[in-house]
């Protein structure tokens, strides 16, 4: 091919290379959720309860002085039961298991739910020690979710237990 034609060809091909890069560097655009949808993120990391027994004075006396802890607690933690309801209907229910080989770590959950924007009655119930019946933590509230809003459902004992953010 004659040189000028080759130069033109090269310019066209390098232009196509640049156009390819430029296009796929930002396009096509991507929408993870539709415009009228909000997200509820349920995420918790919590140590389950455990049943401790009070040692009797006789038992304490048999122990070396430096090991006389008044309570004897098992290493393992309880499973945690969690229920999430939206407008009174069950949305998610799970039993979280403690992590670790000895089941002594935190129990965790992370779930993302897409819901239409609007007002809902949101309820979360949690039992962190399954020896006891029912739920020892409950949080209920009417929430208004705007499009694209992210509502986090979390647990923090310092914030009074279950909370919405």
């Amino acid at each position: 091919m004659a040189k000028p034609a080759a130069i033109v060809g090269q310019i066209i091909l390098y232009g196509a290379f640049a156009a390819f890069l430029g296009y796929f560097a930002t396009s096509p655009t991507y929408k993870q959720i539709p415009d009228d949808v909000a997200l509820i993120k349920l995420s918790m990391s919590h140590l389950g309860g455990r049943e401790c027994r009070k040692r009797s004075p006789e038992e304490l006396a048999k122990l070396p002085p430096n090991m006389r802890a008044p309570l004897e607690c098992p290493r393992g933690r309880s499973d945690i039961k969690l229920v999430l309801e939206l407008d009174g209907k069950p949305m998610f229910e799970t039993v979280m298991h403690p992590t670790g080989l000895s089941k002594d770590g935190v129990s965790t959950v992370y779930k993302r739910f897409e819901v239409k924007a609007g007002t809902y009655q949101l309820s979360v119930k949690m039992n962190d020690n399954l020896i006891n019946p029912g739920f020892n933590f409950v949080k209920e509230a009417q929430v208004t979710l705007k499009p694209a809003q992210v509502l986090v459902v979390d647990f923090n004992p310092d914030k009074g237990g279950l909370f919405f953010q």
């Binding site: 560097a25 930002t26 655009t29 694209a148």
Partner: peptide, 12 residues
């Protein structure tokens, strides 16, 4: 606090 809307994704 907000989920990102339309994203200009780098597909590479």
């Amino acid at each position: 606090a907000l989920a990102p809307a339309e994203l200009r994704l780098d597909w590479f």
